[in-house]
Simulated scan of single mutants.
Amino acid sequence: MDIHERKDEEYVDIHIERRRFIWISVLVLIGLLTLVVLTVNKIRDLAERVVTPEEYRPTPEVYDIQGYPAASEKLFEEFLGRGDNRLRFALLEKFLQLHRVDKVVPPYELLRQGSDWLLVGEPPFAIPPMEQWGTMVDTLRVIQREIIPRIGPVVVLSGWRTPHYNGKAGGANASKHLHFCGVDLVPQHRFTRKQLLPVLRDIHKKSGKQWNMGLGIYSGIRFHVDTCGYRRW
Score class of each variant (00 low, 15 high):
residue 125 F to W: 07
residue 84 D to E: 13
residue 217 I to L: 12
residue 108 Y to R: 03
residue 21 F to M: 11
residue 101 V to R: 10
residue 206 K to D: 10
residue 163 P to G: 09
residue 84 D to L: 09
residue 107 P to S: 11
residue 122 E to R: 09
residue 142 V to L: 12
residue 122 E to Q: 12
residue 104 V to Q: 12
residue 14 I to V: 08
residue 61 E to H: 04
residue 27 L to W: 13
residue 182 G to P: 02
residue 229 G to M: 10
residue 108 Y to G: 00
residue 16 I to C: 06
residue 49 R to Q: 10
residue 199 V to M: 11
residue 228 C to E: 06
residue 139 T to N: 05
residue 43 I to L: 08
residue 119 L to V: 10
residue 73 E to I: 07
residue 117 W to T: 01
residue 126 A to G: 04
residue 178 L to D: 00
residue 64 D to G: 00
residue 2 D to C: 02
residue 168 K to E: 06
residue 80 L to W: 04
residue 22 I to H: 05
residue 78 E to W: 14
residue 91 L to N: 02
residue 106 P to Q: 13
residue 132 Q to K: 10
residue 65 I to A: 14
residue 178 L to R: 06
residue 220 G to S: 09
residue 130 M to I: 09
residue 207 S to K: 03
residue 126 A to T: 05
residue 86 R to N: 01
residue 25 S to W: 11
residue 52 T to E: 15
residue 204 H to N: 05
residue 98 L to T: 03
residue 50 V to L: 13
residue 210 Q to K: 15
residue 147 I to K: 03
residue 29 L to H: 01
residue 115 S to A: 10
residue 183 V to Q: 04
residue 193 R to N: 05
residue 199 V to I: 11
residue 116 D to I: 13
residue 108 Y to L: 11
residue 19 R to F: 11
residue 193 R to T: 08
residue 59 T to E: 11
residue 22 I to C: 06
residue 11 Y to P: 00
residue 15 H to S: 07
residue 179 H to G: 05
residue 230 Y to N: 08
residue 58 P to A: 14
residue 52 T to F: 15
residue 203 I to F: 03
residue 136 M to L: 13
residue 214 G to N: 09
residue 184 D to G: 01
residue 140 L to D: 00
residue 155 V to D: 04
residue 116 D to P: 01
residue 132 Q to M: 13
residue 24 I to A: 13
residue 44 R to K: 13
residue 174 A to Y: 11
residue 100 R to I: 07
residue 64 D to K: 01
residue 87 L to K: 10
residue 162 T to K: 04
residue 187 P to F: 15
residue 221 I to K: 02
residue 5 E to T: 03
residue 32 L to E: 02
residue 144 Q to S: 11
residue 6 R to D: 15
residue 143 I to H: 06
residue 118 L to S: 04
residue 215 L to V: 06
residue 153 P to C: 10
residue 18 R to P: 01
residue 18 R to E: 13
residue 2 D to L: 12
residue 190 R to M: 15
residue 68 Y to E: 05
residue 42 K to P: 00
residue 121 G to M: 09
residue 193 R to D: 05
residue 83 G to M: 13
residue 4 H to Y: 15
residue 13 D to K: 10
residue 105 V to M: 08
residue 11 Y to N: 11
residue 204 H to T: 04
residue 15 H to K: 14
residue 28 V to L: 13
residue 32 L to Y: 07
residue 70 A to D: 02
residue 6 R to A: 14
residue 11 Y to V: 06
residue 116 D to C: 03
residue 72 S to Y: 00
residue 27 L to K: 06
residue 159 G to I: 05
residue 4 H to I: 14
residue 113 Q to C: 03
residue 136 M to H: 01
residue 169 A to M: 04
residue 184 D to E: 08
residue 223 F to N: 01
residue 169 A to L: 12
residue 198 P to R: 11
residue 94 K to L: 13
residue 162 T to P: 02
residue 171 G to V: 06
residue 177 H to E: 08
residue 48 E to C: 05
residue 108 Y to E: 05
residue 35 L to S: 10
residue 10 E to M: 15
residue 95 F to D: 02
residue 87 L to P: 00
residue 193 R to F: 06
residue 223 F to R: 03
residue 215 L to G: 04
residue 176 K to G: 15
residue 212 N to M: 08
residue 22 I to V: 14
residue 176 K to Y: 14
residue 138 D to C: 01
residue 156 V to G: 01
residue 183 V to F: 08
residue 57 R to V: 13
residue 81 G to H: 00
